[in-house]
Design a binder for these strands. Structure first.
Length: 287
DNA sequence: GTATTTAGGCATCAATCACG
DNA sequence: CGTGATTGATGCCTAAATAC
């Protein structure tokens, strides 16, 4: 599906980007400014999320009837549709950087930095990093594909950096936190079943003791990690065996078994048929 | 000849349980 | 939540058999 749509209006054709509805995150604009005394913007509404981060000086940020007095190492979020106003201090005007973005993952990623409609202010000690990211963004001015990727990357780095100082609060919801471990484990398994991974690798990935991870798996899936990994590999093997151009050895290596002999043995134990028999049965049933 | 499967030995790994 | 011991399972190897 194309991310652009053609419109025709009074005989004029034009392109409108509809990207923002589909894309996770998209940088709209960014900048840096050494503000003069009492320099201000607004009140106005914006279409994107905009994060301002103060490198130096002071100023105020107004949203509705709330007024925030802010200074260096602090930042503020402007949400799309909110009427906002901000103004540099008279004696010690601020210097700030800003980054505007949208995309369907915006809220989620802002949440990582503990930012939302309810909390528009943050602090970060990574002043130099954040500044460098924005300066790098500003250096990129050509419309090449590689530049688009670089901008995306810098935006992710920027958001990651402001999330860095937020404490990861696992104790908030015990049930949720342990299903999170399971989800992360499953994600890891789905991405790496072809890589000869062990249960120990899964445990290391999510940062849990292997024994403990096993008990979590049993509790939530009624399967051990090993059994789950095995079922992922075997189900993938079922799929791959349908492709007749792949040898048994090819299939074996593709689902994480270096040794085709081991794969064969395991497959038979799991399915009741050897890989070759399974393939022959498929072939018969299709005719 | 090649591709696949089986058997058995050995080392490593995983699940479970008891415990801090 | 993590650790350590135990016991059973799994993976990899060699050798050998079978099918094509």
């Amino acid at each position: 599906m194309s991310s652009y749509i053609y419109f025709e209006d009074d005989g004029i054709k034009y392109l409108e980007s509809t990207k923002k509805e589909y894309v996770d995150l998209c940088l709209c604009f960014c900048g840096i400014e050494v503000c003069k005394s009492s320099h201000s913007f607004g009140p106005a509404i914006r279409e994107q999320y905009i994060i301002h981060y103060i490198l130096d000086g002071k100023g105020i940020y107004k949203v509705g009837d709330k007024v925030y007095n802010l200074e260096k190492n602090q930042g503020f979020l402007i949400c799309p549709g909110d009427l906002t106003y901000y103004e540099a201090d008279n004696d010690d005007p601020w210097t700030y950087i800003w980054v505007a973005f949208n995309g369907i993952k915006s809220e989620q990623y802002l949440k990582y930095a503990n930012l939302s409609h309810e909390n528009l202010i943050f602090e970060s000690n990574h002043k130099e990093l954040l500044k460098d990211y924005v300066l790098d963004m500003l250096k990129i001015n050509r419309m090449r594909n590689c530049d688009e990727l670089r901008l995306q990357g810098l935006l992710y780095l920027f958001l990651s950096t402001i999330s860095d100082s937020v404490d990861y609060n696992v104790s908030e919801n015990k049930d949720l936190s342990y299903t999170l471990y399971i989800e992360k484990s499953i994600e890891f398994i789905n991405n790496n079943f072809a890589n000869n991974i062990k249960v120990t690798d899964i445990a290391n990935y999510v940062g849990l003791n292997r024994s403990y991870l096993s008990s979590l798996f049993k509790k939530s899936l009624n399967l051990s990690p090993q059994e789950f990994l095995l079922s992922v590999r075997m189900n993938k093997a079922y799929e791959l065996l349908k492709k007749l151009e792949l040898s048994i050895g090819d299939v074996s290596r593709s689902v994480g078994y270096i040794d085709p002999l081991t794969f064969s043995k395991t497959f038979k134990k799991y399915s009741g048929y050897s890989p070759k028999q399974y393939r022959e049965n498929l072939y018969k049933n299709n005719l």
